[in-house]
Nucleic acid binder design. Structure first.
Lengths: 102, 102
DNA sequence: ATGCCTGTTCGATCTACGTCGAACTTAGCA
DNA sequence: TGCTAAGTTCGACGTAGATCGAACAGGCAT
C-alpha cells in the first residue's frame, strides 16, 4: 500500500456533483490548496455560522472530496483532488480551473 | 458570424452545475447526442410525467446546456456541448465521459 | 486544574425544488 | 374543419436541504 491513511472511497458522481453545486461549498473547495496541503477551517468560509459550515464540511467529506486532519488541536481540511480525479478524470479539476468570477 | 441561430449565452457555472446535479437531468444529457444531433423529447426520459419533464427541459435550456428545435412539428432537443466547453473547458465533457453506472 | 477557543451535534424553521394533474396552445392529419 | 397528439403553463403539494442558535465535547494554554 502506498500509504496507511484510511480513505473512504469517493462517492457516486451524482453525490459529488450535488456537493459541488452548492455555492458555499464550491467556494470552500476553491479556497483549499489544489495540492492537498491542509488549510485551517476558519479560512474556508465567511458570513455563515459555524454550525452551517460544519454541515457543509460533512457533506463534502461524505462525498469523498475532502478529508480532515488535526494539526495542533485545530481542524484542517485537505482537498482529495487526486482521489476524485482517479474516480472521475477531469471533473473536479476542470471545475476548479474556472475563474471564480463566473 | 459563423451561424445565424440565436443562442442565449451559457449560464454561470453555478447554474450549470445545479442543472447537472439532478439525476433526471443528467440522464437526459446522457441520452442526447454528444455531437449535437437533435433527439426527440420522448426519448429523453422515463417514469415521470410530461409536465415534470418539461420543467427539467426548461432548467437545462436556461442553463444554456441544451436548445430546442422543432422538426416536423415535434420538439427535439440538442446538446450545446461545444458552447459549454467554450465557456468551461472540460467540465461537461468529463462528466458525460463517466460511465452511467456510477 | 480550569477556562477558553474551536468545531460538532441536535432541534427547529423556512425556503427551494421536484412532482403531479388539469387546463391551454399549437401543429399536423383525416 | 374539427380531431388528436405533444408540450407548455399553472397551481398545489410534499420533501429535501440550508440556515440558525444553543448545548456539548475536546485540546491548549495559562
Amino acid at each position: 500500500m502506498s500509504d496507511n491513511q484510511e480513505r473512504p472511497p469517493v462517492a457516486p458522481l451524482q453525490d459529488v456533483l450535488a456537493a459541488i453545486s452548492d455555492p458555499v461549498r464550491l467556494e470552500m473547495l476553491r479556497r483549499l490548496d489544489p495540492d492537498g496541503a491542509p488549510v485551517a477551517c476558519g479560512q474556508l468560509y465567511d458570513g455563515i455560522g459555524k454550525s452551517t459550515a460544519s454541515h457543509h464540511f460533512k457533506i463534502l467529506r461524505e462525498a469523498g472530496v475532502i478529508e480532515v486532519e488535526l494539526i495542533a488541536g485545530k481542524t484542517h481540511q485537505r482537498l482529495r483532488l487526486a482521489d476524485v480525479e482517479a474516480a472521475y478524470p477531469g471533473v473536479l479539476s476542470s471545475i476548479l480551473a474556472v475563474p471564480s468570477a463566473r
